[in-house]
Simulated scan of single mutants.
Amino acid sequence: MDITMRRAGWRLGALVLAAAVAGLPARGLAADICDSDSADQATLNQCAERDRAAADRALNQVYQQVVQRLSGPDLQDRRKALVAAQRAWVAFRDAQCRFDTVAVDGGSASGMVSAGCLTGLTQARTARLKTYLACQEGDMSCPVPPAP
C-alpha cells in the first residue's frame, strides 16, 4: 500500500471518528433542549412534533393490542365497530384541533399549538383504549374480552 492510500485511509478514519464523537453530544443536547426554557420557537415546534409522534406511536401500539383481542371469528362485528369508531375519532381529533388552533393559523407557534392539541387528544384516546385491555370477565359494559 502506498503512502497516499494510507493517508486517505487515516483521514477517512479520523473523519468517521470525529463525526461519531460530534454526534454524541448533539443527540444529548437535542433531548435536553426540549426541557429548556431558552429554546426558540422553531425548536419548540420540533419538540412538540416529537411529542405528537410519540403519542401517535403509543396509540397505534395500544390500538393493535385491542384489535388483536378482537381477532376471533365471533368478534368480527366488534372489530368492525372498533375500526369505524377509530376512523371517526381520527376525523374528530383532526377537526377539533383545526378549530382549537384557528387563532394561531399561520403564526410561528402554529406548529407547536397544533401538535400540542393532537398530542393531548391522542393521549386521551390511548388511555381510553387501555381501559378495554383491562376489562374483567363478566363486565358487560366492555366490548373487548379479557386476555386469555
Results as ranks from 00 to 15, higher is better:
5 M>C: 10
5 M>E: 15
6 R>Y: 08
6 R>A: 13
6 R>P: 05
7 R>S: 10
9 G>E: 14
10 W>E: 05
11 R>H: 10
11 R>T: 13
11 R>P: 00
12 L>I: 08
14 A>C: 02
14 A>P: 00
15 L>W: 13
16 V>T: 11
17 L>T: 08
20 A>P: 06
21 V>K: 02
22 A>R: 00
24 L>A: 11
25 P>C: 04
25 P>V: 06
26 A>R: 00
28 G>F: 08
33 I>G: 03
33 I>D: 08
33 I>A: 12
35 D>P: 09
36 S>K: 04
36 S>T: 11
38 S>V: 13
40 D>K: 03
40 D>L: 11
44 L>A: 15
45 N>D: 14
46 Q>K: 07
48 A>Q: 04
50 R>E: 14
50 R>V: 15
51 D>K: 15
53 A>P: 12
55 A>Q: 06
55 A>E: 08
55 A>K: 01
55 A>G: 12
55 A>L: 11
58 A>E: 14
58 A>K: 00
66 V>C: 09
68 Q>V: 06
69 R>V: 05
70 L>P: 04
71 S>H: 09
72 G>P: 08
75 L>A: 11
75 L>F: 04
78 R>A: 15
82 L>A: 07
86 Q>W: 01
86 Q>K: 00
88 A>C: 02
89 W>H: 01
90 V>E: 10
91 A>D: 14
91 A>T: 10
95 A>M: 05
96 Q>G: 09
97 C>N: 02
104 V>K: 03
105 D>C: 02
105 D>L: 11
107 G>V: 02
110 S>V: 07
110 S>I: 04
111 G>V: 09
112 M>N: 03
113 V>W: 02
117 C>Y: 01
117 C>Q: 01
117 C>G: 06
118 L>K: 01
123 Q>H: 11
123 Q>I: 08
125 R>A: 07
128 R>T: 15
130 K>D: 08
131 T>A: 10
132 Y>R: 00
134 A>Q: 12
